[in-house]
Amino acid sequence: MQEFRLTVGPASFRLLSEWKKPLNQMRELYAEYPAADIPDFTVRLEAVNALRRFIRPSAAINGDYMLPDAAPLPIEQGLLALEMGMNLQMALGWRRQMILHASAAERGGKALIMTGESGSGKSTLSALLGINGWRFMGDEFALIDPVNGEAVPYPRLISLKNEAITAMQDGAADIRFGPLMKATPKGDIRHMVPPADAIAQMSKRANPALILFPRFGHDPAIRDMPPSETFMRLTQASTNYVALGEQGFEALTGLVQNVPARALDYRSGEEAMELVEKLWEELA
């Protein structure tokens, strides 16, 4: 087994793999991230069986926490498999903060949190903000400290899908990308290294100031969202809300009572950025 250890925000990982290549890709893309002494989680990429280590290699995603029916991925998508394994550890095992399936960005010490279903564009929007004057905090999980309500950065690699890949490639010259992985179970995927300030400040927290529910592909519109609806949607977006018990309930009620929320429909990245800036001026 090959091994690579890394720290992303408050969490650290030991990545193990029977194949060198995906780990080397991770090493390169996560080069600026701190190492880990005693990692919080272990992720293992293992051959489905001995034969499949060499012939049409197929990697099962295993580790401390596993899904019984998780489909293996071809080894060309090993990088994606490792990222999925890391997400799974966080979603199932992390208890130190409340996890929201959301992206986040910071400006002026305050955090914007964006959540929505797959395809809503939350990941792309956080990447766009990250190269337009905001500090990128994460594209997958927003971590909320249950004691003081602060958002804790989790700036893993940004996972770009389908059209978002070309959009970002054209957008900036000095960005580093991982390999383009075509036709994965989630479509075409290419990982992007977050901007340098996002990595350098990965332990700098921020107070949530605005919650957005973006939706890509609709005529531009902004809708108020009452705390009750925000609360219900965020319980759905959290992977550990129930496990945190009363602590989780208090963290979430605190969040929705103190932070304004809006639903935001948009048709293009530019349009969304304009609307986000406008709402931020008004509300944050």
Binding site: S12, I38, W94, R95, V242, A243, L244, G245
Partner: peptide, 21 residues
Amino acid sequence: PGGVAAILEDARLNAEYQRRS
């Protein structure tokens, strides 16, 4: 080590959740 203490604290929190459920 501090890192271990945090992991075990998570484990206790999780056990409490399992007991409750």
